[in-house]
Design a protein around this nucleic acid. Structure first.
Length: 297
DNA sequence: CCTGGTGCCTGGGTGC
DNA sequence: TGCACCCAGGCACCAG
Protein backbone atom coordinates (compact mmCIF):
# COMPACT_ATOMS: atom_id res chain seq x y z
CA UNK A 1 0.00 0.00 0.00
CA UNK A 2 1.34 3.41 -0.89
CA UNK A 3 4.77 4.26 -2.07
CA UNK A 4 7.58 6.53 -0.99
CA UNK A 5 8.22 7.53 -4.58
CA UNK A 6 5.96 10.02 -6.27
CA UNK A 7 5.41 8.93 -9.83
CA UNK A 8 5.17 11.91 -12.13
CA UNK A 9 2.82 11.34 -15.02
CA UNK A 10 2.86 14.72 -16.61
CA UNK A 11 4.07 16.80 -19.45
CA UNK A 12 7.42 17.63 -17.90
CA UNK A 13 7.80 20.91 -19.67
CA UNK A 14 6.20 20.21 -23.01
CA UNK A 15 2.70 21.02 -23.88
CA UNK A 16 0.68 17.85 -23.85
CA UNK A 17 -0.91 16.95 -27.14
CA UNK A 18 -2.53 13.64 -28.06
CA UNK A 19 0.62 11.47 -27.81
CA UNK A 20 1.65 12.95 -24.47
CA UNK A 21 -1.84 12.60 -23.02
CA UNK A 22 -2.06 9.02 -24.31
CA UNK A 23 1.22 8.28 -22.59
CA UNK A 24 -0.13 9.69 -19.33
CA UNK A 25 -3.32 7.66 -19.76
CA UNK A 26 -1.40 4.42 -20.15
CA UNK A 27 0.55 5.15 -17.00
CA UNK A 28 -2.63 5.99 -15.08
CA UNK A 29 -4.56 2.84 -16.04
CA UNK A 30 -2.87 0.43 -13.59
CA UNK A 31 -2.77 3.05 -10.83
CA UNK A 32 -6.33 4.34 -10.94
CA UNK A 33 -8.59 1.66 -12.39
CA UNK A 34 -10.97 0.47 -9.68
CA UNK A 35 -9.71 2.95 -7.07
CA UNK A 36 -12.26 4.74 -4.92
CA UNK A 37 -11.82 8.47 -4.31
CA UNK A 38 -12.20 9.02 -0.57
CA UNK A 39 -11.44 12.73 -0.21
CA UNK A 40 -10.91 15.79 -2.40
CA UNK A 41 -9.32 19.21 -2.19
CA UNK A 42 -9.04 21.86 -4.86
CA UNK A 43 -7.63 25.35 -5.36
CA UNK A 44 -10.24 28.04 -4.76
CA UNK A 45 -8.48 30.53 -7.02
CA UNK A 46 -11.19 32.55 -8.83
CA UNK A 47 -9.83 31.75 -12.28
CA UNK A 48 -9.06 28.10 -11.69
CA UNK A 49 -10.90 25.96 -14.23
CA UNK A 50 -11.98 23.53 -11.56
CA UNK A 51 -15.67 22.71 -11.28
CA UNK A 52 -17.59 20.27 -9.09
CA UNK A 53 -14.33 18.54 -8.25
CA UNK A 54 -15.65 17.24 -4.91
CA UNK A 55 -18.55 15.37 -6.55
CA UNK A 56 -16.12 12.54 -7.26
CA UNK A 57 -15.77 11.67 -3.58
CA UNK A 58 -17.21 8.25 -2.76
CA UNK A 59 -17.05 7.03 -6.34
CA UNK A 60 -14.81 4.44 -7.94
CA UNK A 61 -12.86 5.16 -11.12
CA UNK A 62 -14.19 2.64 -13.62
CA UNK A 63 -11.60 3.23 -16.34
CA UNK A 64 -9.16 5.80 -17.73
CA UNK A 65 -10.08 6.90 -21.23
CA UNK A 66 -8.84 9.61 -23.57
CA UNK A 67 -10.56 11.78 -26.18
CA UNK A 68 -8.24 14.18 -27.99
CA UNK A 69 -6.27 15.90 -25.25
CA UNK A 70 -8.90 15.16 -22.59
CA UNK A 71 -8.59 12.42 -20.00
CA UNK A 72 -11.99 10.95 -19.15
CA UNK A 73 -12.45 8.96 -15.95
CA UNK A 74 -15.94 7.49 -15.74
CA UNK A 75 -17.09 6.99 -12.15
CA UNK A 76 -19.31 4.27 -10.72
CA UNK A 77 -22.64 4.94 -8.99
CA UNK A 78 -21.03 5.44 -5.59
CA UNK A 79 -22.92 5.81 -2.33
CA UNK A 80 -25.87 7.69 -3.83
CA UNK A 81 -26.74 6.60 -7.33
CA UNK A 82 -27.01 9.76 -9.45
CA UNK A 83 -29.58 10.10 -12.20
CA UNK A 84 -26.78 10.03 -14.73
CA UNK A 85 -23.33 8.51 -14.35
CA UNK A 86 -20.59 10.96 -13.46
CA UNK A 87 -17.28 11.42 -15.17
CA UNK A 88 -14.10 13.17 -14.09
CA UNK A 89 -12.75 15.23 -16.99
CA UNK A 90 -9.10 16.32 -16.86
CA UNK A 91 -7.24 18.56 -19.29
CA UNK A 92 -3.55 19.29 -18.76
CA UNK A 93 -3.58 22.58 -20.67
CA UNK A 94 -0.03 23.66 -21.37
CA UNK A 95 1.74 22.91 -18.15
CA UNK A 96 -0.44 20.43 -16.30
CA UNK A 97 0.84 17.16 -14.89
CA UNK A 98 -0.44 14.39 -12.67
CA UNK A 99 1.36 12.53 -9.94
CA UNK A 100 0.48 9.71 -7.59
CA UNK A 101 2.21 9.64 -4.23
CA UNK A 102 1.92 9.60 -0.47
CA UNK A 103 -1.04 11.20 1.26
CA UNK A 104 -0.65 14.25 3.44
CA UNK A 105 -0.96 12.15 6.59
CA UNK A 106 2.05 10.12 5.52
CA UNK A 107 4.26 13.13 4.83
CA UNK A 108 2.84 15.98 6.90
CA UNK A 109 2.79 18.05 3.72
CA UNK A 110 -0.48 18.00 1.74
CA UNK A 111 1.38 18.53 -1.51
CA UNK A 112 4.26 16.13 -0.76
CA UNK A 113 6.80 18.77 -1.70
CA UNK A 114 5.20 19.50 -5.06
CA UNK A 115 4.51 23.04 -6.24
CA UNK A 116 1.36 24.42 -7.91
CA UNK A 117 -0.91 21.57 -6.85
CA UNK A 118 -4.47 22.55 -7.85
CA UNK A 119 -6.39 19.34 -7.06
CA UNK A 120 -5.79 16.46 -4.67
CA UNK A 121 -7.76 13.23 -4.63
CA UNK A 122 -7.08 10.83 -1.79
CA UNK A 123 -7.53 7.24 -2.96
CA UNK A 124 -8.66 4.15 -1.11
CA UNK A 125 -5.21 2.56 -1.45
CA UNK A 126 -3.62 5.17 0.79
CA UNK A 127 -2.18 7.26 -1.99
CA UNK A 128 -3.07 10.67 -3.43
CA UNK A 129 -3.56 11.76 -7.01
CA UNK A 130 -2.29 15.31 -7.46
CA UNK A 131 -3.01 17.60 -10.38
CA UNK A 132 -0.31 20.24 -10.77
CA UNK A 133 -0.79 23.18 -13.10
CA UNK A 134 1.54 26.18 -12.75
CA UNK A 135 -0.18 28.34 -15.39
CA UNK A 136 -3.74 27.28 -14.62
CA UNK A 137 -4.53 26.49 -18.24
CA UNK A 138 -5.72 23.02 -17.43
CA UNK A 139 -9.05 21.97 -16.03
CA UNK A 140 -10.66 19.40 -13.80
CA UNK A 141 -14.42 18.92 -13.80
CA UNK A 142 -16.88 16.30 -12.68
CA UNK A 143 -19.74 16.26 -15.16
CA UNK A 144 -22.60 14.07 -16.33
CA UNK A 145 -20.96 11.49 -18.57
CA UNK A 146 -21.42 12.06 -22.30
CA UNK A 147 -23.28 15.32 -21.76
CA UNK A 148 -20.65 17.93 -22.38
CA UNK A 149 -22.53 20.64 -24.26
CA UNK A 150 -22.97 22.91 -21.25
CA UNK A 151 -19.88 21.87 -19.32
CA UNK A 152 -16.97 21.19 -21.68
CA UNK A 153 -17.69 22.88 -25.03
CA UNK A 154 -14.58 21.69 -26.83
CA UNK A 155 -15.28 18.11 -25.81
CA UNK A 156 -18.88 18.41 -26.96
CA UNK A 157 -17.83 19.29 -30.51
CA UNK A 158 -14.62 17.28 -30.62
CA UNK A 159 -13.68 15.79 -33.98
CA UNK A 160 -12.74 12.16 -34.69
CA UNK A 161 -9.86 10.39 -32.98
CA UNK A 162 -7.01 10.49 -35.51
CA UNK A 163 -5.71 7.00 -34.66
CA UNK A 164 -9.04 5.29 -35.27
CA UNK A 165 -11.06 4.54 -38.37
CA UNK A 166 -13.36 7.39 -37.40
CA UNK A 167 -10.72 9.70 -38.89
CA UNK A 168 -11.66 9.32 -42.53
CA UNK A 169 -9.48 10.89 -45.24
CA UNK A 170 -12.36 11.77 -47.54
CA UNK A 171 -14.41 13.35 -44.76
CA UNK A 172 -11.30 15.25 -43.66
CA UNK A 173 -10.74 16.53 -47.20
CA UNK A 174 -14.39 17.52 -47.55
CA UNK A 175 -14.31 19.41 -44.26
CA UNK A 176 -11.15 21.27 -45.28
CA UNK A 177 -12.74 22.19 -48.60
CA UNK A 178 -15.66 23.80 -46.74
CA UNK A 179 -13.52 26.30 -44.83
CA UNK A 180 -11.71 29.53 -45.65
CA UNK A 181 -9.62 29.68 -42.48
CA UNK A 182 -5.87 28.96 -42.55
CA UNK A 183 -5.34 25.19 -42.57
CA UNK A 184 -3.30 25.34 -39.38
CA UNK A 185 -6.17 27.08 -37.56
CA UNK A 186 -8.43 24.18 -38.56
CA UNK A 187 -5.94 21.60 -37.33
CA UNK A 188 -5.77 23.33 -33.97
CA UNK A 189 -9.47 23.93 -33.35
CA UNK A 190 -10.21 20.26 -32.43
CA UNK A 191 -13.41 19.96 -34.50
CA UNK A 192 -11.87 18.61 -37.68
CA UNK A 193 -9.62 16.20 -35.85
CA UNK A 194 -9.05 15.68 -32.12
CA UNK A 195 -5.80 16.05 -30.21
CA UNK A 196 -3.56 18.04 -32.56
CA UNK A 197 -1.64 20.94 -31.02
CA UNK A 198 1.01 23.36 -32.15
CA UNK A 199 3.87 20.85 -32.45
CA UNK A 200 2.11 18.18 -34.49
CA UNK A 201 0.27 20.72 -36.63
CA UNK A 202 3.60 22.20 -37.74
CA UNK A 203 5.11 18.75 -38.23
CA UNK A 204 2.24 17.39 -40.33
CA UNK A 205 2.06 20.50 -42.52
CA UNK A 206 5.81 20.31 -43.14
CA UNK A 207 5.59 16.64 -44.12
CA UNK A 208 2.69 17.35 -46.45
CA UNK A 209 4.43 20.36 -48.01
CA UNK A 210 1.49 22.63 -47.17
CA UNK A 211 1.92 26.24 -46.07
CA UNK A 212 0.36 26.64 -42.60
CA UNK A 213 -1.49 29.79 -43.67
CA UNK A 214 -2.94 28.17 -46.80
CA UNK A 215 -6.69 28.67 -47.15
CA UNK A 216 -7.05 26.31 -50.05
CA UNK A 217 -6.19 22.68 -49.54
CA UNK A 218 -7.55 20.47 -52.30
CA UNK A 219 -8.49 16.81 -51.98
CA UNK A 220 -5.11 15.38 -52.96
CA UNK A 221 -3.18 17.51 -50.50
CA UNK A 222 -5.80 16.99 -47.78
CA UNK A 223 -5.51 13.21 -48.09
CA UNK A 224 -1.73 13.50 -47.87
CA UNK A 225 -2.05 15.69 -44.79
CA UNK A 226 -4.39 13.13 -43.24
CA UNK A 227 -1.85 10.37 -43.86
CA UNK A 228 1.03 12.36 -42.39
CA UNK A 229 -0.97 13.31 -39.32
CA UNK A 230 -1.67 9.65 -38.59
CA UNK A 231 1.94 8.62 -39.22
CA UNK A 232 3.39 11.36 -37.02
CA UNK A 233 0.95 10.84 -34.15
CA UNK A 234 1.53 7.07 -34.21
CA UNK A 235 5.29 7.55 -34.12
CA UNK A 236 5.01 10.08 -31.31
CA UNK A 237 2.82 7.75 -29.23
CA UNK A 238 5.43 5.01 -29.65
CA UNK A 239 8.27 7.27 -28.54
CA UNK A 240 6.54 8.65 -25.47
CA UNK A 241 7.75 5.95 -23.11
CA UNK A 242 11.34 7.02 -23.41
CA UNK A 243 10.61 10.71 -23.76
CA UNK A 244 9.29 11.00 -20.22
CA UNK A 245 12.22 9.16 -18.68
CA UNK A 246 15.20 11.00 -20.12
CA UNK A 247 13.73 14.42 -20.17
CA UNK A 248 15.99 17.28 -21.22
CA UNK A 249 14.96 20.64 -22.55
CA UNK A 250 16.12 21.19 -26.13
CA UNK A 251 14.04 23.71 -28.02
CA UNK A 252 11.15 22.93 -25.76
CA UNK A 253 11.27 19.20 -26.35
CA UNK A 254 13.05 16.25 -24.83
CA UNK A 255 16.48 15.18 -26.02
CA UNK A 256 15.37 12.22 -28.09
CA UNK A 257 12.22 13.86 -29.30
CA UNK A 258 14.12 16.89 -30.65
CA UNK A 259 15.78 14.70 -33.29
CA UNK A 260 12.33 13.70 -34.50
CA UNK A 261 11.14 17.23 -35.19
CA UNK A 262 11.39 18.59 -38.72
CA UNK A 263 9.56 21.90 -38.24
CA UNK A 264 8.69 22.78 -34.63
CA UNK A 265 11.55 24.70 -33.03
CA UNK A 266 13.60 24.55 -36.26
CA UNK A 267 13.44 28.24 -37.23
CA UNK A 268 16.66 29.58 -38.79
CA UNK A 269 17.86 26.04 -39.43
CA UNK A 270 18.05 24.52 -42.91
CA UNK A 271 14.93 22.67 -44.04
CA UNK A 272 15.68 18.94 -43.84
CA UNK A 273 14.03 18.45 -47.21
CA UNK A 274 15.31 21.32 -49.36
CA UNK A 275 17.93 23.19 -47.31
CA UNK A 276 16.10 26.53 -47.32
CA UNK A 277 16.25 28.41 -44.03
CA UNK A 278 13.14 27.64 -42.01
CA UNK A 279 10.96 30.67 -41.26
CA UNK A 280 8.88 31.66 -38.26
CA UNK A 281 5.58 33.47 -38.34
CA UNK A 282 2.26 33.64 -36.53
CA UNK A 283 -0.78 31.71 -37.72
CA UNK A 284 -4.01 31.47 -35.76
CA UNK A 285 -2.27 33.41 -33.01
CA UNK A 286 0.35 30.70 -32.57
CA UNK A 287 4.06 30.60 -33.21
CA UNK A 288 4.52 28.73 -36.48
CA UNK A 289 7.66 27.37 -38.14
CA UNK A 290 7.64 26.34 -41.78
CA UNK A 291 9.77 26.09 -44.89
CA UNK A 292 9.05 29.08 -47.14
CA UNK A 293 10.29 27.12 -50.14
CA UNK A 294 8.76 23.66 -50.06
CA UNK A 295 5.56 24.36 -48.12
CA UNK A 296 3.13 25.82 -50.68
CA UNK A 297 -0.07 27.80 -50.37
C1' DC B 1 -23.09 29.38 -39.12
C1' DC B 2 -17.98 31.04 -39.62
C1' DT B 3 -13.88 33.75 -38.62
C1' DG B 4 -10.45 36.36 -36.17
C1' DG B 5 -9.01 38.61 -32.05
C1' DT B 6 -8.31 38.81 -26.99
C1' DG B 7 -7.67 37.21 -22.28
C1' DC B 8 -6.40 33.91 -19.04
C1' DC B 9 -1.69 32.61 -16.24
C1' DT B 10 3.19 32.41 -14.70
C1' DG B 11 8.07 30.38 -15.32
C1' DG B 12 11.76 31.42 -17.85
C1' DG B 13 14.36 34.03 -20.92
C1' DT B 14 16.20 38.51 -22.62
C1' DG B 15 17.95 43.13 -22.53
C1' DC B 16 19.50 46.99 -20.13
C1' DT C 1 23.20 41.44 -9.85
C1' DG C 2 18.55 43.41 -10.33
C1' DC C 3 14.68 44.59 -12.65
C1' DA C 4 11.26 45.39 -16.28
C1' DC C 5 9.52 43.32 -19.88
C1' DC C 6 7.69 39.78 -22.88
C1' DC C 7 6.87 35.32 -24.67
C1' DA C 8 4.94 30.44 -24.70
C1' DG C 9 -0.04 28.47 -25.96
C1' DG C 10 -5.11 25.44 -25.33
C1' DC C 11 -9.25 26.94 -24.79
C1' DA C 12 -13.28 30.10 -23.65
C1' DC C 13 -15.43 33.93 -25.07
C1' DC C 14 -16.85 37.76 -27.89
C1' DA C 15 -17.75 40.83 -31.88
C1' DG C 16 -18.58 41.25 -36.65
Amino acid sequence: MGTSVTACLGSLGRMPELPEVESVRRQLVPELTGRRIVDAWYDAHPHARLTEVALAVGHRIVEVRRRGKFLLLPLDDGPVSPARPLELVLHLGMTGSLSIGPTSTATGDPDAGLTHVRVRYDLDDGRTLRFRDPRRFGRASVVDADDYAATVPTLATLGPEPLTEAFDPEAFAAALARTSAPVKARLLDQRLVAGVGNIYADEALWRAGIHPASRRVGRTRAVALHRHLVTILEAAVEREGTTFRDYQMVNGASGRYADFLDAYGQAERPCRRCGTTMARTTVAGRGTTFCPSCQRH
